[in-house]
Simulated assay, not measured.
Amino acid sequence: MRPEARQGDMTRFVARALLLPALVTAAAILVKGYAQPGDGFSAGVVASLGVLLQYMAFGKEEAERLLPLPPAGLLCFGGLLFALTIAAVPLLLGDPPLTHYPPPGEEPIHLGTLELITAVAFDLGIFLLVFSFSLGVMRLISATREEGEE
């Protein structure tokens, strides 16, 4: 077996092995970002890097077969709309934009150890925006590259 073939197999193995840890790390950053360093933006970047590694190791068609994700534009629009809604709802309640609920001093609802506050929802919208934008750029670059090869 040629060294290039072994190197390609190793790259694919490492890419596949790192996908789940990258996504789990992104989820951890997403849900703990409001209390510790990190946020939806950082989580989106980490998840994007895991998916980017799949595109680089396997190519566009195989990566999309492994990760059947919806159209990037739809996800991007949904994330933006969700984040803007979370930011604007306080205006309807007479508070400044981006006011977090529940207010300080009140006990938030808990889902296990996760505190369900509006900062988590806003970070989810930012995560979707960053991740889907990165996904769209990856798809565009890989499609352009494949067109150039043909």
Rank of each mutant, 00 (worst) to 15 (best):
L20N: 10
G59K: 04
S48Q: 03
G79V: 11
D39R: 06
G50D: 00
G59S: 05
E64N: 13
E62V: 14
Q54C: 08
V14D: 00
A57G: 04
A83H: 12
L19E: 05
Q36R: 06
A22T: 06
P21G: 03
G59V: 01
G38K: 06
M56L: 14
G59T: 08
D39A: 01
A47V: 08
Q54V: 03
P21F: 06
F58T: 05
D9W: 08
L49E: 00
P68R: 04
A72Q: 13
G44C: 09
F82G: 01
G38N: 02
E61W: 13
T25M: 09
A26R: 00
G73P: 00
L81E: 07
K60F: 02
I29R: 03
L80V: 08
G59P: 11
Y34F: 15
G79Q: 14
D9T: 11
Q36P: 00
V51H: 03
Q7S: 13
L49I: 15
V51N: 01
T85L: 14
G40C: 02
L52V: 02
G38Y: 02
A57Q: 08
D39S: 15
S42W: 08
P37A: 11
D39W: 14
G73N: 12
L18S: 15
P90F: 04
G59W: 01
G59I: 04
V14S: 00
G79R: 12
F58M: 06
I29T: 08
L81D: 06
G40H: 09
A87F: 14
T11H: 09
E61G: 07
F82P: 04
M56D: 03
Q7W: 15
I86Y: 00
C76Y: 12
R12L: 08
A27H: 00
D9F: 05
V89P: 02
P71Y: 07
C76G: 09
L69K: 01
A35N: 12
L53C: 14
T25D: 04
A26G: 12
P90L: 02
L49Y: 10
R65S: 06
A15W: 00
V14R: 05
T85H: 05
A22N: 12
V89I: 15
A72W: 12
P71W: 13
A63S: 10
K60E: 13
V31L: 01
G73Q: 05
L80Y: 11
A47I: 10
L20W: 09
E61T: 13
G40Y: 09
F77T: 15
F13S: 14
L84K: 02
P90R: 07
V31D: 00
L84Y: 09
A22F: 13
L52K: 02
I86A: 04
G40Q: 05
A35E: 15
E64K: 10
L74N: 04
Y55T: 05
P68D: 06
A26H: 01
P70F: 11
L69F: 06
S48I: 09
L30G: 07
A83T: 07
G73S: 01
R12I: 01
A26K: 00
F82A: 12
